[in-house]
Design a protein around this nucleic acid. Sequence first.
DNA 1: GTAGGGTTAG
Length: 377
Amino acid sequence: MIRKFKVEQRSFDISRTTLHTKVAKSTRCLTVIANYVKQSTFAEYIPVTFDHPKNQRLNEAFVSPNKLSYPDIYSCTKRIQGYVRNNRLNDALKLFEEMPVRDAVMWNSMIKGCFDCGNLEVGFKLFEEMPERNVVSWTTMINGLLTHGRTEAAEQLFREMPLKDEAAWNSMIYGYFVNGRVEDAVRLFHEMPSRSVISWSSMISGFNQAGKSDDALLLFKQMLSCGVRPTSVTFSSVITACANVRNLHLGVEIHGHVVKLGYLSDTYVTAPLITFYAHCKDIDSCCKVFKEKMHISVVVWTSLLTGYSLNCKHEEALEVFADMFRFGVLPNQSSFTSALNSCCEVEASDRGKEINGAASENFLTRQDQRLLNKEGA
DNA sequence: GTAGGGTTAG
């Protein structure tokens, strides 16, 4: 059965199935079809030939006679992800199982959902059942296992995976750090065929987590000498490393680069920069960084609050805490921890009682706080 | 338009 394929057309017929796509380019359309066809779980297929001259490689393909348009797969994938975000794994699985057709994105989203909701067995089962695993499927599994401390199982999959791209290597490296296997991470970093800024940033952040910020900074210098350009994400970790080792000189230098590159407005850069100056006992610079703009992030506010607290400026810390309320920034557990600490230090017992009351009585569940933090970040 | 890799306070 031969069907003509027209370029620059929004929808087209193949057999009795209609596929809709917004993509005008024929090759992109065909990729969509190819994925659709490959992932289809139907037993009954109708062979189709695409006879556009550009598509010689796709001469033979099979299309399911049942109808399910591509946008349906897209929207159901979105719904599955939404269920997972709300920890409703069973609803996600039910929808997934009801789908007559699934593509790789849907499979991978569902597998990730199982790990995110802590159901490793179902995640494994789906991975086994999945008809056409791609490199993302393998990496999703590896990440899921690593975040649940199943390092050996992740290693095994990493060995078995037929094609490792850079993201897969990066996942395994970072996962080693998370699970305290620093030497293995370093070994893998040297073994990997090509390294991007993400690989370097993973290492820098990993060293920080392992309490080896000296090594993080050494690696950062090495990264620069290799001509790799840091991103704001890299700077975030590097500034944290400077704070950890109290390297004022390097931190100030990096601060300069951050300003030049326009990264100072990035919350993930501002907060560690404030912490860095606080650790280096330069509270004026803390304020200067903070006052660069109006912040709504509770993390940035808490950096300043803790910065004052660290430098024994407890009255000022409590002022910051009060200002948070005035500016509509809702403090979280960390903010309360610092503020209470300052209260104890200045023996401002009345104030301390006040804050303690607010923290214990009206305050929020952990989930609420997480949501608020996300919004504030 | 959808899936996997690195970031912040305590």
